[in-house]
Amino acid sequence: MTLPPILILHAPGTNRDAEAAVAVELAGGDPRIVSMTDLRTGVVSMSEFGGLLLPGGFSYGDALGAGARLALELRTWLSDELADAVRSGRPLLGICNGFQALLKSGLLGEPSGPEGRRRVTLTDNANGRFECRWVTLRVEPVVRSGWLGSMAGMKIRCPVAHGEGRVAVSDSEVIGTLESERRIAFRYLSEDGHEGGDRLAGGLYPANPNGSAGDIAGLCDATGAVVGLMPHPEDHVVDWQRPGGPPGARGLPLFKAFVDAAR
């Protein structure tokens, strides 16, 4: 059986590509790190791949806001190929900077506001600082994403490492809309989350490390193919990576689900 080929996008400043490749490999995929240059110039085509992963980093230095310039590149150079991928149900996973870029590019299909404007964004952490720490996530029990379905309700322990990871919404109804559309894919759990607790973080730092509205750590689009999250499940794929505590709650099942959907 051939392993499903997974495209891992590398733009200038991407830096968690190598770990993402390890995670995909352990999950049974065939990762290939492809540069934005090769995609833009058509040396490599997205259609060769069963799934697309946008890893973390600081694409283009995030100088114009996290993921903003990468989002522009995605819209400018790759919109047709990406639309194709989504139409054909191939999974797209954006982690951290990849999530920021997916969201800002419109690929996470926002509920359309009065002027067709985005109503969800990722912006500065509430404490105004870059924050690196381990958190516990829950894959939401009821989630629109089909390929995440096998993981519904499961927990993942992994680090966050970002300065602009706060989910902010334009008005208070947005969270309800996202919930009813089952587009909230991941939420932060409280600090005892990895020891069996199942309470949400309730907006409290540090369990919710950035002040995200509704404890939202990740979203999916209306088709369910596109999934994005701020934390780094690729940094917890083997047991020795975890900082103490009981084993389990690895990120590997997420990559298995992703790779399975790419077959």
Partner: peptide, 22 residues
């Protein structure tokens, strides 16, 4: 130290903060 990414590259085993509450 929490403003520094000490986890990237997925190989940090001995961390700047340890224990049950890190």
């Amino acid at each position: 130290v929490r403003t520094y990414d000490h986890e990237v590259r997925g190989g940090t085993i001995g961390r700047p903060f340890v224990g049950v509450r890190a």
